[in-house]
Design a protein around this nucleic acid. Structure first.
Length: 203
DNA sequence: GTACCGATGCTC
DNA sequence: AGCATCGGTACT
């Protein structure tokens, strides 16, 4: 099954299928080690497209393989790969990877250990030097900055757990990572998550 | 117009 | 454990 076929399907299938795949941009090659699935308007309150289509999330509604790049916390960029049919706002967030080529480019002036260069979604996006200009380009057509390489590593074991930092849908186990891989980012539960859906604790 | 806050990362 | 920092979204 090709990745294009996988990306045409639901995000919770596409997210683990991306593990062990190789992507490259701006002189850096990455082996994907951690991803998260977001289901758009289909009942996933953690998705940026949960409420409706807006100027920001428009790329999530495009063809499978389209990049959705968003600006986070006033200083970071994060990159998603859109999946599902056109018109369905599902996507997979690339959360971490191992830099396997172009380590010096991937550093981008940062004082990080090699294994940390793409450990976390904002670091990963920085390592690949992607930003708003990559939003709306496609991973699969070879014309955008991020390209898919014809290389897949067999993945021994995949772990799954709740998504990092989300306050809504905080218990849906749609975060996937290669078990035991040192480049996987640490899990952090949103401090807001505990209050969501618990009226007794809200005041 | 305005207030709120986050799919984070760095420093203390 | 606390903070930087700003665009998107919702609400007045």
């Amino acid at each position: 099954m090709s990745l294009a076929d996988v990306l045409a399907g639901p995000p919770e299938d596409a997210a683990p299928a991306l593990l062990g795949r190789y992507v490259a941009a701006h002189g850096v090659t990455l082996r994907i080690t951690e991803t998260e699935a977001y289901a758009g308007t289909a009942g996933d309150p953690a998705s940026h497209a949960y409420r409706r289509r807006t100027a920001r999330n428009a790329s999530m509604f495009e063809d499978p393989g389209t990049l959705y790049v968003y600006f986070s916390y006033g200083m970071h960029w994060c990159v998603n790969i859109t999946c599902g049919p056109v018109g369905v706002a599902a996507a997979v967030l690339l959360r971490a990877g191992e830099v396997v080529d172009g380590v010096e480019d991937a550093r981008r002036g940062r004082a990080l250990r090699d294994r940390d260069l793409a450990r976390g979604p904002a670091r990963l996006t920085r390592a690949l030097d992607l930003d708003r200009s990559a939003d709306g380009t496609n991973l699969l057509d070879g014309r955008g900055p991020l390209v898919l390489l014809d290389r897949v590593d067999p993945v021994e074991h995949i772990s799954a757990g709740p998504r990092t930092g989300v306050s809504q849908g905080a218990d849906i186990p749609w975060r996937f990572w290669i078990t035991g891989d040192p480049t996987v980012s640490p899990y952090r539960r949103s401090p807001r998550a505990a209050l969501v859906g618990n009226d007794a604790l809200r005041e």
